[in-house]
Each structure stands twice: as structure tokens, then as C-alpha cells.
Amino acid sequence: MLKIKNLHAGIEGQQILKGINLEVKAGEIHAIMGPNGSGKSTLASVLAGREEYEVTEGEVEFLGKNILDMAPEDRAREGLFLAFQYPVEIPGVSSNNFLKTAVNQVRTYRGLEPLDAVHFLKLMKEKMAMVEIEQKLINRSLNEGFSGGEKKKNEIFQMAILEPKLSILDETDSGLDIDALRVVANGVNKLKSEDNATIVVTHYQRLLDYIVPNFVHVLYNGRIVKSGDKSLAFELEEKGYDWIKEEVDSVA
């Protein structure tokens, strides 16, 4: 589904990703972990197509298409979803209106008829129940005055509505209490299928108790320096990142 080959990228002339290689297949969950400043969020932003980041080398293929030349909205329409670390507030715009616009632009791109108000409402109700989000959050302006937990729940709700092929969760666990974490993780697990894939970007092992990954990758200094299964996450939780840093730095 996703093939990243030798990806180099940076911002304002500063190189952050220094040769990432990663393959994600349908049905898989990958966790990307690493210390602060290792390039985790940069990777998420580059995949989503944030303009400030410049790709200097490498390829990213998503569902057989090179996405590096695509506008961010086209990547989204192809089925790539980013759950933001810091979702923005858009005053005066209801979730309903925002999501209806999004869903229908995506549908139009895929050659489908736009949903009318009745069908869209039905979709909303169904997904709201699925991810356990309250109606009152949906009625308010998008993310405006939401708590950290409410914003993250809303990201998962949007993901449920848009049904992406590949979801990237960028530090979705940061700032969540244990109850909110459980709700968010439940949502992600329910949306999981054999046809889609998830990349969980996180600093802590905690989230991975709820969203169990098939693969764990450690990102350090712009490269994936270690890959393993779920046990790698436990090892990191126990020993911290220093031993990996030492291992890498001694080789270098």
C-alpha cells in the first residue's frame, strides 16, 4: 500500500529525514517511535504533503501512485488520512458542514455522486455511534474551545467518516487521559480492516497497549534504526531510548 524509499526531506534548509525506507501493507499496523526531534512528525507531515517541507530525495508510492507530486487534497482523496497532533480550530464552521464538504469533494474525485443531506446525516449518526462521540461536540464549531481529548476524539470521528485506506496518527495519545485514550483506541480498532492500514506515531508505549502494532520502528536522527515486533516497544518502555542512541552512534 505504502512504499517509502530513501526519503530525504527537510525544512528551511535543515535536513530532518535522512533516508527513510518503509513498506506498509494492507491490514497492517505500524508504530513509529523515537525520541523527541527524531523526525516522527516531519515524516507524518511530509506524507500528508505539508508545503513547508521540502523533499530532496527519494520516493513515496501510495496505492501504486507517486504521491510526492500530488496536492495535499489529492493525497487525502486517494485515501490518506492524517490525525493531527494539534487539530486546528475553525470558528463558525460546524463539523457537519466541514465534513459534508470533505466527503463530497472526495466522492466527486472518485467519480461518485455527492451525498445528499439525508444520506450524509445517516452516515454521521452511524459513525458517531461507532467512535462514541457526543452529538454536542458535532454541533459546535469545528474544534473551537474543545479540550485536548475532545479534539483527538474528533480526529478519529473524521477518520471514521472519511474511511481512509491509510491512517497516520500523529502523537494522537499526547495529552490524553486514560479514558479518552481508550475511546480513541477503540475507535481506531473498530475502523481496522484487512483493506486498510495504520501508522501510529508515538513517543510512548502506552497507546500500543490498546492499538496493537504488527511492527514497531524506531526513528532516530532521521533514519529508521531498528525494527521489530511489539516486544520492541516494551523494551523501549523499559530501557528508554538511550541504548538505541548509543548503538547507532557507536556504529557511526
Binding site: A71, P72, E73, L82, V88, F98, L99, Q105, V106, Y109
Partner: peptide
Amino acid sequence: FYCNQRGIDTENAIALIVNG
């Protein structure tokens, strides 16, 4: 960018934000 990432093009994003 947030709107773009949900599949909304820039023109429609501005329309949403301004009308909000």
C-alpha cells in the same frame, strides 16, 4: 492545510473559513 488534508481544496477551504 487542515482542510486540504480532509480532501477539501484551497478554494473551498477559504470559502468555509470565511463563511464561518
